[in-house]
Computed example of a mutant assay.
Amino acid sequence: MAGLDDLPPLRDALAAHGLAAKKSFGQHFLLDLNITRKIARLAQLPEGARVVEVGPGPGGLTRALLETGARVTAVEKDERFRPLLEQVVAASGALTLVLADALAVDEAELTGGEAGHVVSNLPYNVGTPLLIKWLTGPWTPASMTLMFQKEVARRIVAAPGDSDYGRLAVVAQATSDAEIVMDVPARAFTPPPKVDSAVVRLTPRLDRPEPKRLEALQTLTAAAFGQRRKMLRASLKGVGGDLLLEGAGLDPQARAETIDVAGFLRLADAWLARG
């Protein structure tokens, strides 16, 4: 049986099938196997890990993940890539192809109930919604190693007081330890996007908020950062205002971007305590 080493180079495979990136799907291909192999290493996958990859496209990162010995389930919305990915399925024996919208799939079903790891060069137009799904939904990955536009990556790891600090940073850091582990210039992609990218690695926190607390956190951060120029007493008026802030020990005249994750979690606790 043919193996991964017998597969044609990615550029040749794309050319043979007349395929190009589709702008409407936010596609930008990583065809440099040195880069995809580095991302696979940065994922720090245990031997035989179960991995979910979203948006594999022609399969560059997929090949690198399979080389580590991972068992990969690739979720691809674009049916055009079925022939290329089926070649990888046949060559590896450790790849399962699922043609579906990643926002709608049940990851627990895909992984057979295992926690699993997510490693993806995410399509630009669904990167943030997918991250929120994995951070707050019923299925919690064992780790996530994800490529985003650099501005989104900065928003995930931003600290209080940073211009990039907002709701995404609070939710991400309340649920996981997040760090940027690699910068990837636009020229590394085909076609090159207008911005650079970065790889973020996220590992679930041991003190990850339980579902009700996490739901409260999302509600309150949406209100606080929805009017980020206002003082908290004004932006949170509709959900409790001064009384809620007093219960959390927060200054009513502060603005959302100055409140750390612990402060927002106290706010969630105060909101839940009110019933």
Rank of each mutant, 00 (worst) to 15 (best):
A21S: 08
A256Q: 12
P209H: 10
L272N: 05
G48M: 04
Q253A: 14
G59F: 02
V171R: 00
A234L: 12
D162G: 08
R41D: 15
R255E: 10
I156Q: 08
F225P: 09
R228S: 06
Y165W: 12
P209Q: 08
G275Q: 13
K194E: 15
R37E: 15
I156P: 11
L4I: 15
A91Q: 10
A40I: 11
A273Q: 14
T36S: 10
S120C: 04
P9C: 05
V75D: 04
L131T: 04
A224L: 03
P46H: 02
E210Y: 08
H117S: 02
A248E: 03
T62V: 00
A64D: 12
A268W: 05
R208S: 09
A102S: 00
G226N: 14
R37N: 14
E79S: 09
A102C: 07
K230H: 06
E246H: 09
V152P: 09
L202Y: 12
L168R: 04
L65V: 06
G166P: 13
L61R: 05
D242K: 08
R274Q: 15
L95H: 09
T128Y: 07
L236H: 08
L243E: 14
D6G: 15
A20M: 09
V118P: 10
M147G: 09
L7S: 13
K22S: 09
E215D: 13
L14A: 08
G137E: 02
T221P: 08
V51Q: 10
A153Q: 01
L85R: 04
L19I: 13
F225Q: 07
L103G: 03
T175I: 01
L31T: 05
A268Q: 07
A254T: 09
E76A: 00
R266H: 01
A91S: 07
R205G: 08
D183A: 02
G240I: 06
Q227S: 13
Y124Q: 06
A169Y: 08
Q227E: 09
K194T: 11
L146A: 02
G55Q: 02
A234N: 15
G3I: 14
P192Q: 05
D164T: 06
T36K: 03
M231R: 12
P56I: 01
G241Y: 01
V181F: 04
T111V: 14
V200R: 05
R155F: 07
A13L: 13
A102E: 00
A223W: 05
L103D: 07
L42R: 10
L19Y: 11
G59P: 12
A262C: 01
A169Q: 03
L19W: 11
A174N: 11
N121P: 06
L42N: 09
S163C: 06
L220G: 03
E86G: 03
A178H: 06
T62A: 02
V118Y: 02
Q218S: 05
T175K: 01
Y124S: 05
R213F: 05
L214V: 08
L122S: 12
A273Y: 05
V118A: 00
D164V: 00
H28M: 12
A21Y: 11
L7P: 15
Q218W: 01
L45N: 00
V200D: 02
G241L: 03
K194V: 12
M1V: 13
A108Y: 09
G127S: 15
K212Q: 14
H17F: 13
T219V: 07
F189I: 13
F81G: 10
V181Q: 03
T203P: 03
V152I: 14
G26K: 07
D260H: 01
A273F: 10
P8E: 05
